[in-house]
Design a protein around this nucleic acid. Sequence first.
DNA 1: ACACAATCGATTGTCGATAACCAATCTCTA
DNA 2: TAGAGATTGGTTATCGACAATCGATTGTGT
Lengths: 221, 221
Amino acid sequence: MTEQRNPVVGISGLAESRPTLKDEAVSIVRRALMSGDMQPGKIYSANALASQLGVSNSPVREAMMALSEKGLLEVVRNRGFRVVEMSPDDQREVYDLRLLIEVTAVGRVADRGVSTEDGQRLAAMVDATLAAARPDNMIDYLERDQEFHLSMVQLLGNTRMTKIIENLRDQSRVSGSYHLAERGLLVASAAEHGPILAALLSGDRNLVESLMTEHLSYSLP
Amino acid sequence: MTEQRNPVVGISGLAESRPTLKDEAVSIVRRALMSGDMQPGKIYSANALASQLGVSNSPVREAMMALSEKGLLEVVRNRGFRVVEMSPDDQREVYDLRLLIEVTAVGRVADRGVSTEDGQRLAAMVDATLAAARPDNMIDYLERDQEFHLSMVQLLGNTRMTKIIENLRDQSRVSGSYHLAERGLLVASAAEHGPILAALLSGDRNLVESLMTEHLSYSLP
DNA sequence: ACACAATCGATTGTCGATAACCAATCTCTA
DNA sequence: TAGAGATTGGTTATCGACAATCGATTGTGT
């Protein structure tokens, strides 16, 4: 018989063509970065992580390399992979870019108009994000938040722009976002999604851009 | 006297040590993409390229993966790596993004002002690009052109923005840029660099942005 | 006490081999 | 003929192993 090999770590549950071990490793490490399980400034070993996951070094190494390309890790030759530590200047760089790209993207969507169907989909996400806005629920909250924002951007249809924004948002969140929970600002941030969506649906570009601009200030320390 | 080894930060700010085989492979393949030695739509084998280069598959594979992350190649599972074939829609996506990001970046540099020293450096690049603008000299020309534009952007000091722009420009060029040579537009394009630099040095943001906008139209088919 | 050389431990960067996999072709049956 | 199923050819995705390399530690001579 054909020898089925079980994915060692697979919790993915999706029944598409099996993701590569590298892909699984990417999402595992990314989640560890967002949740704070891997701490900024610390160096982690690809081989060590590989044996933790029960796979060989190659796919894990490729995953760490991919995340380094995205600016979430730094390769330290012959030492390991360091989780990036965003300096205030780094934060500022990302913030400036998001102000330019993300705000413009959402503004353009307002110009172009949103179908009722998409509007309802987004409204459901607003609710889900608000419901998830509890400090003991950060990982889930961050995912909902990301989903809502990227879904708006996606309506523009520029896949490269969406990817750029996704990457910038990931960078914003890797060594942060916890100041939100610590200060009880989770709900306050999520509560802004409603007005943003309303402005988007009404096609008021200026309003949605100013609301988005204000909203992004939550991503600053 | 403290005799440091050479931990060495170069002028670029990047640590110097021998490039890894992966890094060498990246620049080799990237050059092959720009020069047209690797053709859009065709699938290439990492292993085959590895034995051509006399190294094992791993570093070459990592290089191809990195270029795939950057959108210059596509991974075709168990088949190889396909050179991206930019559809008109793809070209449009990149063009829109460059209009938003690259034009704004140069405009901001005009606002902030350029030192005489940097101005002279850029002027030399303008000359070098013009001198290289010969159809039999595409590879060199493309490098000079890239150097000039990225040097302007670099003056803003946002490293992430520079990287994004570099990547977008690479995507523009991978499956194109030859329409320029074919139509004898090389010199015409290079000739626009002078006025752009002049506007930049005079601090006229509006002018430099409109010139840059016009200039980018050369990157459309 | 200090600079410098030698050693140590850890981790990568690279290697060569192989099973798994996909697309295309071929074969066989209805 | 048409279509399902087996076969083939070529490539990857993954594995396990090892030398090269780095930072830290220890040792040595002045």
